[in-house]
Design a binder for these strands. Structure first.
Lengths: 229, 229
DNA sequence: ATTACTAGCCAACGAGTAT
DNA sequence: TATACTCGTTGGCTAGTAA
C-alpha cells in the first residue's frame, strides 16, 4: 500500500517550488530567490509564487529572511524531510535501491540508543519484531557528510515500527528500526520515530559489537541494509 | 536547474493515482481497481477518481480494459517512465545515489549501438562530450530482471546529450550517454534518447572490451556509474 | 454492485495594483 | 526593481444520478 496521507499536505505547485528551492540550495545558507524567479522556474505567475512561498513558510517547510528588498529562502529540516520521504516512497513503489550501504565512524557517546535497549518494553519489541535480543548498549556511528543523503533517504523509509509506551513518570516515543548487517552479523539501526536529522547511526545487535570486532573510536565501519527494510 | 516541464503534465491527484496503481501493480498484468477503491487510496471521491482514470488513459499513462462490469488497469511504459523520471529528478536534486552499479550478462547481437559508433557525426560528439573515441562496436549486456529497476532509474536520469543529425536518406535520433567504468576502463552506456525500456545496456569504449577482458557470451560483468551522470 | 455524466461550489489561478 | 493584496475567473472538487 502507498503511504499517502501521513505527509504534509502540499499542492502540486508547492511541491514543485520545494524541488526548485532544493535544487538551487547551498547547504544551510539562504539563497536569493525572488517570487518572479520562482514563478518562472515552476511556470506560475509572480503572484502565485508569492502566495506559494507564504504558504510553505506557514507550513514550516521553508524559511525566509529579508535580504534588502528581496528575500532569502531555504528549506527547513521538515521541508528537506518531505522531499526525502517523497523519494523514499517512490523508491519503495518502484523497487529501486532495496540494498543500501552506509559508511560510518565508530564514536562514543553520541546517541540515546543505550536508553532504548535498557527499557524492557522496547527490548520485548526488538526481540519480537527484529529477532534481536539486544545487547544492552548501542554502537554509535558518526556519518560523514558524503553519506548524509543516503542516511536521510534510509531514515525516510518506512522501517519497522517499535511502539513506545508510558511509564509512571514519562512517556517513551515510538522507534523506527531497519534490519542491517555489520560484517554478516545481524543488527538493526534505530531512530526515534519523530526526530530531526542527526548524522548519527545507532546500531543494536545481540552481540557486543565493539568487542566482537575489536572496534575503536575512529574506525570506519560499513553497514549493509538488506532488501525490504 | 530542475528539469520541470519536459514532462507529462500531471496534476497532484493524477500523480498520486499513478503511485497507487504502481504500488499495487503486478508486472504486465491488469489489476482490478474500481474507481471508488482508487478514490479511497488517494482520498478523492469516486467521481474524481473516475475522471482521473479517464484523464490518465487519454494521456497514455495508464491502460484499462473492461473486466466484467469493472475495469482492469495497468501503467503503460510511459506511465512507468514518468514515475522513474520523477524519482530520478528527486535523486538528482537530493544528491542521492550518485554512484550506481549494474550487473549484466555479455550477449551478442542485442542492440543497435554498433550503428551509432559507425556514424561519423555521433563519433565526433562521443569524442568531444565523453572524451571517448569509440572502438567501432559496442559491448551488449543483457540486464537480468533483478536489475531492471536500477537500469530504468539510470535511464531516467539526464545523462549527456549526444545530438542526432540528418543524412541524405534519413534522420538519426538523439542519444543519451552515461559515463561509467568497466574494471577501471572508462566507458559510456548509450541509449536512444526516445525509446521504450529494453533490458539491454550498450557500452562503448576506446578499447575493444570483449578482447581486452576476454569476455564471452554469458559472462557476468559489473558496470559502475560514477558521480554526476 | 459498477462507470461516468451534470450541476453547483470553492480553492487557487492570473491580472491589476499598492507599498 | 521588490512583495503581496484584492478581484474576477476558472479548473477541478463533491454530490446527485443515469446507465
Amino acid at each position: 500500500m502507498v503511504s499517502l496521507g501521513n505527509k504534509a499536505n502540499v499542492s502540486h505547485d508547492e511541491y514543485n517550488a520545494l524541488k526548485a528551492i532544493c535544487a538551487s540550495r547551498n547547504g544551510d545558507n539562504f539563497i536569493r530567490m525572488s517570487s518572479s524567479e520562482l514563478g518562472n522556474l515552476i511556470s506560475v505567475s509572480q503572484q502565485a509564487a508569492s502566495r506559494i512561498l507564504i504558504g510553505l513558510e506557514k507550513s514550516g517547510l521553508i524559511e525566509r529572511k529579508a535580504m534588502g528588498r528581496s528575500h532569502g529562502v531555504n528549506l527547513t529540516e521538515s521541508g528537506l524531510a518531505f522531499l526525502y520521504s517523497e523519494m523514499a516512497e517512490l523508491s519503495n513503489i518502484l523497487g529501486v535501491n532495496e540494498d543500501t550501504t552506509i559508511k560510518g565512524i565508530v564514536s562514543s557517546g553520541l546517541g540515546e540508543g543505550r536508553y532504548y535497549v535498557s527499557k524492557k518494553p522496547y527490548v520485548i519489541e526488538f526481540t519480537e519484531k527484529l529477532g534481536i535480543v539486544p545487547y544492552p548498549g548501542t554502537l554509535n556511528l558518526k556519518i560523514p557528510p558524503e553519506w548524509e543523503s543516503t542516511l536521510r533517504m534510509l531514515q525516510a523509509r518506512e522501517g519497522i515500527l517499535i511502539n513506545g509506551f508510558e511509564s509512571d513518570d514519562r512517556s517513551y516515543g515510538d522507534v523506527k528500526a531497519f534490519k542491517c548487517l555489520l560484517k554478516d552479523t545481524p543488527c538493526a539501526a534505530i531512530f526515534p520515530y519523530r526526530s530531526v536529522y542527526r548524522d548519527v547511526l545507532e546500531i543494536i545487535s545481540q552481540d557486543f559489537l565493539r568487542e566482537k570486532f575489536h572496534l575503536q573510536d575512529g574506525d570506519e565501519v560499513v553497514v549493509h541494509f538488506t532488501s525490504k527494510n
